[in-house]
Amino acid sequence: MNEEMFTPSGKERLQVARDRENAPYPRGDGKVKLVTTDWLAEHLHDADLTVLDTQPDVHDYIREHIPGAVYLNEGVLRVPDRGFPTTYGPLACLQESFRRVGLEADSPVVVYTSKGAFSGRGDGLAQTMMAYTLAKYGHNVVYVLDGGLDAWKSEGRELSQEFPTVEPSRFTVEARGDYAIGYEEFVRVKDDEDVIVLDARPAKVYAGQGPWRMPGHIPGAVSLPWRSLMDDENPALLKPNDALDMILEEHGIDRSRTVICTCGTGREATNEFILFKWFYLYPKVRLYEGSFTEWAAHPDNPVVVGSEPRERRTEAVSAR
């Protein structure tokens, strides 16, 4: 395997590591970037900055949040549609939510989450789910706080219980259609040689039985658990760049291919979509929002059980 196909050279890795501290990272005109706690502390009182708290429970926000942060739970983003449980809400509803927290499409917004101090819940994904959604629906300057609120707290930084005064904005939702891939297109292209499909779910779910009526995974999908990309203690903190480079190399994720990120409901995959599209600047990245939930809703679709992308000895099995 040619390392240069997948990862930067050693010299470039050192530069990338420095650049990540030189937030916002990376440079360029990407819609989503990474910022550090140092950067946020320095810019916290910028007049045009909105800080968005996406902790898992509103009581977590009430208990503690970064000063000036306004609360917006990811639960407002998705609603059922004709029975299917995980579709985005109507554009008018999303727009009203974004307006109420004062978002402006061209003014920076920092998104963070935590393991809630009150609820004890939170897997770190709320900030990537919100960041992806904001970018998809028209925001142009989205910053993800590397490490989230837990990193902020671990450094002894200021917390607040005050609610900011927020004037509603005139944010206009404009859906960007090139991020997501729908079911019909996914079925058509997923097995092409220039496509790699990733499954961000835990390895044991990828290989066996999750909550879905079908076990296993979509044939051909490569297991890349999103949690393997994050710090062992803090699920909102990315691993160091050299560790990420090695993981990408080991999985053969060639930047010349189209990377399709999948998971169970499209939520876990936002972590990897953001990583590849905006942090690693891969040129062709899509997110299959329906993911395994939509795949398994079609009883005739094949699945593969086990740790390999495809069955080696038997044909892929179908749901009974």
Rank of each mutant, 00 (worst) to 15 (best):
N2R: 13
P8Q: 10
A17F: 11
R18H: 10
R27N: 06
G28L: 05
G28P: 01
K33D: 02
L34N: 06
V35D: 07
T36M: 08
H43G: 07
L44R: 07
L44N: 02
L49I: 10
D60P: 00
D60K: 03
D60T: 02
Y61D: 01
I66N: 04
N73F: 12
G75T: 13
V76H: 04
D81W: 14
D81S: 12
G89Q: 13
Q95E: 15
F98E: 06
R99L: 09
G102L: 14
S107K: 15
P108I: 12
V109E: 11
K115V: 14
G116Y: 14
G124P: 00
T128H: 07
T133E: 13
K136M: 15
G138H: 07
H139N: 00
L149D: 03
E158M: 11
L159I: 14
S160G: 04
S160R: 02
S160E: 06
T165S: 14
Y179G: 05
K190T: 01
D192M: 10
V195C: 10
R201I: 03
R201F: 03
Q209W: 08
L224D: 07
S228F: 12
L229H: 02
N234W: 00
N241H: 11
E249L: 15
E249R: 05
G252H: 10
D254C: 09
I260Y: 04
C263K: 04
Y280R: 02
L281E: 09
P283Y: 12
K284T: 04
R286K: 15
A296Q: 01
A297E: 11
H298Q: 11
P299L: 14
P299W: 10
P302M: 12
G306L: 11
R313L: 12
